[in-house]
Amino acid sequence: MLADPSPSGASGDPEPPPLAPIPYVVRSVTTETPDTVTLTIRPSATRRIATPRPGQFNMLYAFGVGESAISVSRASLEGELVHTVRRVGKVTNALSAVTPGDTVGVRGPYGRGWPIAEARGGDVVVIAGGLGLPPLRPAIYAILSQRESFGRVEVIYGARSPKDLVYYDEIQTWRRRTDVRFQTTVDAAGRDWYGDVGVVTTRLPDARFDPPKTTAFVCGPEIMMTLSAKALADRGVPRDRIWVSMERNMKCAVGLCGHCQFGPSFVCRDGPVLRFSALEPFLSVKEV
């Protein structure tokens, strides 16, 4: 087991129903793109969730509307959590409409995150597509905080268009670093974009890493992950060292409701981060 999947972490108070949300107060709301916001929330009382590890997710709850699985993009030891939410339905609409001082519900953290320790000693390639960057952000910080433990670090971030890039300011900071190579590309752009254009896999040939000793973390739309993982494998990265973060319909987030099954895995419990070697036979078949 790579990460402690225990969702408990409530301190002190009597044990609540395991699937019940815990109230958190919204501290700030930042607009990332026209349909995406980043929420910073803090526990409103003594009860709070355990500190999430990079790649884990929480179930965020809008009172009376419902829950949605949202990856954690930052977690502080003080219990502050950062989630980036895209409006794709009623729940995410409600979550996106909050203002500081509002209460949202949180339960989690759930799932297995990025096996950062396993990547030590070798090169790391991080490939993010669109909203695949938020779940990878804590991984990138974790690697940078122990930079000496890794070889070369390549980050490739692709989005549909320049206006779809999230964490824009942070990306600029990362790009200035010399100990990590950060490439950004978009599928298409106007003349005002001076960066690279092309699907995320077109940046891979430029990346410098030693394939047999490389661990790759890939997160983004399923098709983008499949293509990226195949391209990495073609470059010689061992398939069992390519990790992708899957997304499926989730209701319970703890492996009890059956919705998120993908092949042999419960994405909520066994994933969302899974080995490409285990997923490849299923990713190649439609509608698994």
């Binding site: 609540p16 129903p17 699937l19 019940a20 949300p21 109230p23 107060v25 409103s44 009382a45 009172f63 001082g101 509002d102 209460t103 519900g105």
Partner: peptide, 17 residues
């Protein structure tokens, strides 16, 4: 029924079943 959630001022509280 798994539990009941009630508004509690600006926050909410959960009552187990």
């Amino acid at each position: 029924r798994l539990f009941t959630i009630s508004r509690d001022g600006p926050s909410f509280s959960v009552a187990p079943e």
